[in-house]
């Protein structure tokens, strides 16, 4: 059975100061999967997402989103960067941050209005943060900040979601709340690509997985390829004990 491809990456190589951090990556993400990208620190997981989204220029390779280059398909894509990549002391409120999710579809110069505000409030409600809408963002806990980021991705109203460690620094309650929203999105036919750290939860949360360590080790359904062999190839140590018992 051939599924439509949401994301296709061909021969992608990314280097910082001529030192490759991603080497000749081929990757095909079928539509409608909830995919984890796993790999050790420095494996290039965040870099892969950034390269797909055009934030980092690759030195070789091509990327397509539903068959077209990314800059033609921006509006189909939502992005949740790492929480630590922004300054939470920035003078703004939760609802205002969520509204930023609408900036892409608004385009240059046009300002967000009532419609965008309404969308932002709905998204905040979905992630259980409506009562914090006017809270200054530095006054939110780590988990709440992560929920605000998720809400911002929701208002982007995309087909494909790229998320960089959405479970980083959140408590168990928030983690469950976030994964439930991700599963709901998948049910609605969206494609999700998530950089993930906790190997234990991969089989429970995701149906698709990519092993990455500078090169692509494997990609496919969790049921078929999430095994000791691939884990060992990716992390370089034997994972039998960690996962199977």
């Amino acid at each position: 059975m051939e599924r439509k491809l949401a994301v296709q990456v061909d021969d992608l190589t990314v280097a910082y100061n001529y030192k490759p951090v991603l080497w000749d990556i081929d990757l095909a993400v079928p539509e409608g999967v909830l995919m984890a990208i796993v790999g050790p620190n420095g494996a290039g997981k965040s870099t892969l997402i950034k390269a797909i989204l055009g934030i980092i220029k690759p030195i070789a390779g091509s990327i397509s989103i539903y068959g077209k280059p990314y800059d033609k398909q921006r509006k189909l894509v939502a992005y949740v960067p790492q929480k630590g990549s922004v300054d939470w002391d920035f003078p703004t409120t939760a609802v205002d941050v969520v509204m930023m999710g609408t900036y892409g579809s608004l385009g240059w110069i046009k300002r967000p209005g009532q419609k965008e505000k309404k969308a932002a409030l709905e998204a905040l409600e979905k992630v259980g943060m409506l009562s914090f809408k006017n809270r200054q963002i530095s006054q939110l806990s780590g988990g709440q900040q992560q929920r605000v980021f998720l809400a911002r991705a929701l208002v982007q109203n995309a087909s494909i979601y790229f998320m960089d460690e959405p479970f980083q620094g959140v408590d168990a309650t928030t983690e469950i709340a976030i994964i439930n929203i991700l599963k709901e999105l998948r049910k609605a036919g969206k494609t999700l690509v998530v950089v993930h750290h906790d190997l234990q939860t991969v089989p429970e949360y995701f149906d698709w997985v990519t092993f990455l360590n500078v090169k692509k080790i494997a990609t496919g359904p969790v049921k078929e390829i999430f095994n000791d062999d691939n884990l060992t190839k990716t992390y370089g140590i034997n994972y039998k004990v960690a996962i199977n018992k």
């Binding site: 934030i55 921006r74 240059w108």
Partner: peptide, 22 residues
């Protein structure tokens, strides 16, 4: 006045701003 929104997002979140084409 013209670029308030763009200044705001590119100051707060460089990554998303860039991904959105701003």
């Amino acid at each position: 006045l013209l670029f308030f929104k763009e200044l705001k997002i590119s100051t707060f979140d460089v990554g998303l701003s860039s991904a959105m084409g701003i």
